[in-house]
């Protein structure tokens, strides 16, 4: 799906846990997520901390979208 979106010329970032799959599929901008059943969350945290974590990942996603890449790139969440 990432490739079809990219094909129409819209930059897309793939946020997912198993990044090797994303590399194989051919995503160009990749942000690693937390876990398979909760990529953008963590049920062991309290609600506020969990939202903070989600915000951090999405901030990285926005950085990825705003960064020129010339090949497949993984953007680590800082």
């Amino acid at each position: 799906m990432v490739k079809e979106i990219e094909r129409v010329g819209i930059p897309v970032v793939h946020v997912c846990t198993v990044t090797p799959i994303s590399m194989t599929v051919g995503a160009n901008r990749i942000v690693p997520a937390i876990a398979i059943p909760y990529p953008l969350g963590n049920p062991t945290l309290d609600v506020k901390e969990e939202k903070q974590l989600r915000r951090k990942i999405l901030n990285t996603a926005l950085v990825a979208l705003s960064t020129e890449v010339d090949g497949q790139t993984i953007f680590e969440v800082k």
Binding site: V2, P39, A61
Partner: peptide, 13 residues
Amino acid sequence: KNDNVQAVILTST
């Protein structure tokens, strides 16, 4: 594209 969306965040489990 038709609706002029300029960026996509795609999430996978």
